[in-house]
Amino acid sequence: MDHTISHLPDPQYQPQFYNDVPLKRALAWVVDLIVVLALLIPVVLMTAFVGLFFLPVLFLCISFVYRVITLASGSATWGMRLMAIELRDARGRRLTPGLAFVHTLGYTISLSLPLVQLVSVIFMATSEHGQGLSDMSLGTVMINRRA
Rank of each mutant, 00 (worst) to 15 (best):
M1P: 12
H3I: 07
D10H: 15
D10M: 08
P11E: 07
P11Y: 12
P11D: 14
Q14D: 09
Q16E: 15
F17Q: 13
N19S: 14
D20N: 14
V21T: 14
P22A: 04
L23M: 09
R25S: 05
L27F: 15
L27W: 06
W29K: 07
W29C: 08
V30S: 06
I34P: 01
V35Q: 09
V36Q: 05
A38R: 06
L39I: 05
L39T: 04
L40W: 02
I41E: 15
V43N: 09
V44N: 06
L45N: 14
M46E: 01
M46R: 02
T47H: 02
V50Q: 10
V50P: 11
L52Y: 15
F54V: 08
F54K: 03
L55A: 07
L55I: 01
F59W: 09
F59A: 10
F59V: 03
C61Q: 09
I62T: 12
I62P: 11
S63A: 14
S63V: 00
T70C: 10
A72I: 08
S73A: 08
S75N: 10
S75C: 06
A76C: 00
G79R: 11
L82M: 12
L82C: 05
M83E: 04
I85T: 14
L87I: 08
L87C: 03
L87V: 15
R88G: 02
D89K: 02
R91C: 06
L95Q: 15
P97G: 05
P97F: 01
G98C: 00
G98K: 00
L99I: 10
A100S: 13
A100Q: 11
V102Y: 06
V102F: 05
H103A: 13
H103R: 08
T104C: 14
L105M: 13
L105G: 04
G106S: 04
S110L: 12
L113I: 14
P114Q: 03
P114K: 04
P114H: 03
L115K: 03
Q117I: 00
V119R: 00
S120F: 09
V121C: 09
V121I: 13
I122E: 06
F123C: 13
M124A: 14
M124C: 10
M124R: 09
E128K: 13
Q131V: 13
Q131L: 08
Q131H: 04
G132H: 08
G132F: 02
L133T: 06
S134E: 00
S134C: 04
M136C: 00
G139V: 07
T140K: 03
M142D: 10
I143L: 07
R145Q: 06
R146S: 10
